[in-house]
Design a protein around this nucleic acid. Structure first.
Lengths: 248, 248
DNA sequence: CGCCCCATTGAGTGGTTTCAATCGCAGTGG
DNA sequence: CCACTGCGATTGAAACCACTCAATGGGGCG
């Protein structure tokens, strides 16, 4: 099932079998994307949305000097630009990090779901709002934490999100990114990211090397990043409970 | 009409008269909120959402030492926590800045709209995603700009948003906030906010005094804050065009 | 082998924070 | 009318974090 991970990370069992099939059947095509490839450009009109099946993508804004600020990092199962459906136009760029596999959903198909499946609609809506909640936490990360805390928080978040879709365990997960990418996500320079990463390695908190993150002291890392995963709305959220009820 | 400003800021004419009435009739109650009063707490279940009719509110996250990071500043017409409808639980606190007037919408009423009015649903969905777009820009602001640029960007955004709902003109608008509030929005300390504001005043860019912002050199301020209002999805967006078409 | 990208390290600079003190102003009570 | 109080704005000095500039090293790949 193509949409397997998406459902996994967003309370799959809150949906009926029929609803899951509706999502699955809404896929219009699947294709591969090479590393470091832009797939959407700020300001462009969009007529389809993309779900990330495999690999990592990022969304970012450019500053005047051409430096990027990542506003989001997408992991397998994420509906990368579902917000493009109600918005029709994106306010940021989207690109792959490493090689990716994506599924495409035409907006006219999503419009049909909107017409016929209110519960499913609310669930897709929820999915886009989860992104917004993550945005808020990024604001917190950049506004209140120092460089080390930001990286710590970033790693904690990625671990939690990847764990939900079965792509992280024992404190380790893949991250096909350079130190400069991490820097762009954390609002610091590449040079400083290097220093911070070395520090975290030396202190035994976490290691980031050759495309993999290994968290060696989760409690310390969480404390450093002031990380509380409540904003990721895990499986046991009140929302899921209500959706399940409605399922009876 | 209670929801006047909300409609104003979000392409009122994209909606039919009937749809506007549906929104207006969904209001369950209206009440006043004193300054500096928390109305929602992180983690709590919510059964209604709040639209800000008058005054200013903010949404924020606390760090370990009890300092706040604003993740959003809401102006009249904003549907402050509409995302609470699909999410059922908030991941942040909500409080008033100055005195406010709010309208309350019960979620069960919104659920009816979801069932019966797909077009309206999509429009409300859009409204929550506009918030997300603003979040992204805040991430950019905090990640790429220095203190002066952040404040400049903050002022530019507020001016643009308030102008949309008819509450700003000639470069001036009300902002019932302290310098410490501005600091919390921009991820800097209150002391530094003071210095930055003085600098901006001396240079003739903008003045913030006694609850009012006066922008005296908009072009310079926009340049300083690298401000491009595309993310606010103004009246002439492609989205509005499509909604209008569907209206025929 | 040579190239290029990425990681790494050093030194110096500058923006921001922290700590601390002062000032202005409005509200309160004697 | 004036002292008292409290909050917000303002300023100074010192410390620190992160940035810039610059150079070196390492590894993959043509």
């Amino acid at each position: 099932m193509l949409t397997h991970r998406f459902l996994l990370g967003r309370a799959r069992d809150a949906l009926s079998e029929e609803e899951r099939q509706v999502i699955e059947n809404a896929v219009s095509s699947v294709r591969q994307i090479p590393p470091r490839t832009q797939i959407q450009r700020r300001g462009e009109l969009v007529t389809h949305s993309v779900m990330l099946l495999d690999g990592y993508m990022c969304r970012y804004l450019d500053d005047r000097e051409g430096y990027r600020q990542l506003v989001s990092l997408q992991v397998p199962g994420d509906f990368v630009d579902l917000h493009g459906f109600p918005m029709k136009r994106l306010d940021h760029d989207v690109a792959s990090l490493g090689p990716c596999t994506i599924a495409t959903f035409e907006h006219r198909t999503l419009a049909e779901i909107l017409e016929r499946y209110p519960r499913l609609t609310r669930w897709l809506w929820f999915s886009t709002l989860l992104d917004a909640a993550i945005h808020r936490e990024w604001i917190f990360r950049l506004g209140r934490l120092g460089a080390e805390g930001r990286v710590a928080h970033f790693f904690c978040e990625l671990y939690a999100r990847l764990e939900m879709v079965g792509l992280a365990r024992d404190g380790a997960f893949a991250l096909p990114a350079t130190q400069a990418d991490v820097a762009e996500a954390c609002g610091i320079t590449g040079v400083h990211a290097n220093r911070v990463l070395r520090l975290m390695r030396e202190r035994g908190f976490a290691t980031f090397r050759s495309g993999e993150v290994e968290i060696t002291d989760m409690p310390k890392l969480k404390a450093l990043g002031e990380f509380d995963p409540i904003y990721l709305y895990g499986q046991h959220s009140a929302w899921v409970a209500e959706m399940r009820e409605g399922n009876d």
